[in-house]
Nucleic acid binder design. Structure first.
Lengths: 339, 339
DNA sequence: ACCCTTACCGGCATCGTTTTCATGTCAGTA
DNA sequence: TACTGACATGAAAACGATGCCGGTAAGGGT
């Protein structure tokens, strides 16, 4: 690692003071045209690059955003892409840290980013996270913070998320409309907000349609295809077997799909299946899977925009909340009635 | 953003000098036990965190690795996960920048990271990248650099990649062994190293088996399912239509698969298909797709390890190269002969 | 009484840059 | 001549931490 050219080198070479060089480089007033020219020429020649660390130290600002996410699956990778795009445009660099769905790692990442002195945080919590001290600490230090996707409902922080209740409502209503009678839900981890919201939308829609809720038809499991497979097998072996499953993620839906096929059931005739996220893979499977589109890229961009707004404005934004409306994409796994 | 507690605050409160406080906090010699205790107690109370920027400026070291990748698809996300894991363990934070397969963005990212003063670079080039001045600049500045996955062959830099020739060889030989006679290849972008390596392995294997190469059966296209679909359609409409396709990525294979199905051809009976990467989705499709496993997570970890080695050792490592051996995973799309 | 060691601590420079304040020069004006 | 102001530049503080070097005081040995 070679020593970089500094402002001092230029100053020395031109018998100027560092202050004058600094001013010349930034086109400030009070510098004669000749010195300005000379400075710029030499800077060019020596490939001078201002040292960002020194600037950051001085201004107490790093132009860096800490992003903490539970994993890098399709949805989050897409969101990160959206965040990245907007942040880059605005001159910010993004530090992405994966908590790997682990509470401990999430705390570690928070600490790391905190003393890397990022200008702010964009966070989506892990499925293990149930206490929020580390998040609150960010707030206490008055560091800008935006939550996205997996938000914390009862916390006074700007947040952006999907209308998960509505998404579940769309999915459930669709299954009902297609004539499925005993609809089960494959929910995610029990303490996770998005999981509960989608469950709530499901239950609410059943009620609206005056369909009795069978508690055995609600199964929680981790966001993992294999667990979903096991859970679905369990559902299919019940006495009052369901005739449709609403899985709150496509990964879960795929696990369920394998179990359904193994049981010799045909979709959509014998059994209905709806997923969530609208991952590209849903369109490719046989049968293709009906799913809820959540506009991940847009959510990412909106999140970064809100973050930037928070950085630049001084007003309190802690009650700001953006909720994105989902859209149901109907495919073979649940389309029983042709239109 | 609140002012953080500094070493000066502690010094002032305890009527000590900053140097003493600094030493006390780091358990250095020459500090009495009482002052040490007092300093640590107060530091704890005030939630003192050393300012990393100041340290970085002083030591000229940021403990940050700049990672530049072309996208965040399954393979690269997995590799990044591997890099992240090893880096975190070693006390480094990773800055991931996506070039989005754009040469311009790659250069921009390099510039950004360069003047963010990262301690080094881990890079996988975009498919557009044909000149390497920006990469060479990193080398010129003597900043540690490791290439991975999509490496630059004729450049004197430590690199880690898959044995792409061997992977293609495995895939092609398998198709030949299964009795396919006219095998086409869906190659990636023409200037991309991995694309050409896989093509080379393909051609070489045909030659070894004394099979004539039909130049029309080599088609290049971007890593994009839709382009692959179009390319496959083209292949299928030829006079001497191929009876198998080796696609150099699973995404391409999926695009081809759709075209094959549309043409009314049954896999593996009428047509053979092999992909590359062994993405989880290959196992889920109907038929499931034979693919070449490339151990992305391991490659990621190995890359980070090599990077750390480079940082810590002083010797020249520019000729170091690790080549990972791939493995063929045979599935329905090409298994014609039961064993 | 003198010197030397040892333990403990403070001063200062340093990293690279910005910024405020001060300084010096020269021309113009009363 | 003396003052004013513009103009160009320099000196120094500041950001937060480290580390070298030097200083002081206490204590022991002669």
């Amino acid at each position: 690692m070679e020593r970089q050219t500094t402002i001092k080198d230029i100053a020395l070479a031109l018998r100027l003071s560092t202050s004058t060089v600094s001013r010349a480089l930034r086109d400030a007033a009070d510098v004669s045209i000749e010195t300005r020219k000379a400075v710029k020429a030499l800077a060019e020649e020596l490939d001078y690059q201002p040292n960002k660390l020194a600037l950051s130290l001085l201004k107490n600002q790093t132009n860096t955003i800490g992003v903490i996410i539970p994993n890098l699956d399709y949805v989050l990778a897409t969101m990160v892409k959206g965040i990245d795009e907007v942040a880059l445009e605005a001159g910010y660099t993004v530090m992405v840290c994966q908590s790997d769905e682990s509470f401990g790692r999430e705390i570690l990442n928070t600490k790391r980013l905190l003393d890397s002195l990022v200008d702010g945080f964009i966070v989506s919590v892990s499925s293990e996270t149930m206490v929020y001290e580390h998040i609150k600490k960010i707030q206490t230090k008055k560091i800008p913070l935006v939550l996205f996707d997996r938000v914390i409902n009862n916390m006074n922080v700007p947040k952006i998320s999907l209308d998960n209740v509505e998404g579940a409502r769309l999915a459930t209503q669709h299954l009902i409309d297609q004539g499925y009678k005993r609809i089960a839900i494959l929910a995610g981890p029990e303490n996770l907000g998005i999981s509960n919201d989608r469950k709530a939308g499901f239950i609410q829609t059943l009620k609206q349609n005056k369909i009795a809720l069978d508690k055995n038809h609600i199964i929680h499991c981790d966001f993992n295809q294999d667990y979903a497979y096991i859970a679905a097998k369990e559902l299919l072996s019940m006495n009052k077997r369901p005739d449709a499953i609403f899985a709150i993620s496509d990964r879960l839906a795929i696990g369920a799909m394998i179990a359904i096929k193994e049981a010799g059931l045909k979709m959509p005739k014998d059994f209905g299946l709806v997923g969530f996220n609208n991952e590209p893979v849903t369109k490719l499977l046989t049968p293709s899977i009906t799913s809820v589109e959540m506009f991940a890229f847009d959510i990412g961009k909106a999140t970064a925009k809100m973050f930037l707004e928070m950085i630049h404005s001084n007003e309190d934004m802690s009650d700001k909340e953006i909720i994105i409306k989902p859209k149901l994409v109907i495919r073979e796994s649940s389309r029983r009635i042709s239109e």
